[in-house]
């Protein structure tokens, strides 16, 4: 049921799209990025410690070393808990709603569920992001008072930012389900 396909994100890094068919009207898309690579962690840790050691060598103050260890640990924890997103999931259940969740490397998960009655459509949009123009998938929400108007836009896969070919695949799949209901 689930098949991992390899795509790239807008910076050319590899990401994986897993598409899981729970039933004909319930599908789950998971975009996962590679795990925190050990090399990066090593590089950052080593550089911080090297700097700390140099400072220690010059000042002969041991507080610097313990400070460096503390900074590395806290930095890593914060990064894993608040910054690094491991995978993002889009669960679309026909006639019930869409659930968007992103789980951090530490296992923390943040989830939002949007009811079908509030959803106007799911589209691919273009926007300017960090001195570039990129495509992204987003959910259009209805205005509660006026069903034709648009109240806001919920962007999907915000952290992994897949390229157009990946978005098109998810989009087509989503539209199939939306068309059924």
């Amino acid at each position: 049921m689930s098949d991992d396909e390899e795509f790239t994100d807008i910076n050319g890094k590899v990401i994986f799209l897993a598409c899981q068919n729970h039933s004909s009207f319930c599908r789950e898309f998971t975009v996962s990025v590679p795990k925190v690579s050990l090399r990066h962690v090593m590089v950052y840790t080593c550089s911080v410690w090297l700097v700390a050691y140099v400072v220690f060598f010059l000042t002969e103050n041991t507080a610097v070393l313990s400070g460096a260890i503390f900074v590395t640990l806290v930095g890593m924890l914060l990064h894993v808990h608040f910054v690094k997103i491991d995978h993002e999931t889009l669960l679309i259940i026909g006639s019930l709603g869409v659930q968007v969740s992103s789980s951090y490397a530490s296992g923390r998960e943040s989830t939002t569920f949007i009811e079908m009655s509030k959803i106007k459509d799911i589209v691919i949009n273009e926007s300017i992001y960090m001195q570039r123009v990129i495509y992204y998938l987003c959910i259009l929400l209805k205005e509660p008072t006026d069903p034709d108007a648009l109240s806001s836009v919920v962007p999907l896969f915000q952290s992994s930012k897949p390229r157009l070919n990946c978005l098109v695949k998810v989009y087509k799949s989503c539209q199939e389900i939306l068309a059924q209901c």
């Binding site: 790239t8 807008i10 910076n11 050319g12 273009e126 570039r132 123009v133 495509y135 390229r163 157009l164």
Partner: peptide, 10 residues
């Protein structure tokens, strides 16, 4: 930084 090949063609 961003090669032309990773820019999506509109």
């Amino acid at each position: 930084f961003v090669p032309d090949s990773v820019i999506d063609i509109a």
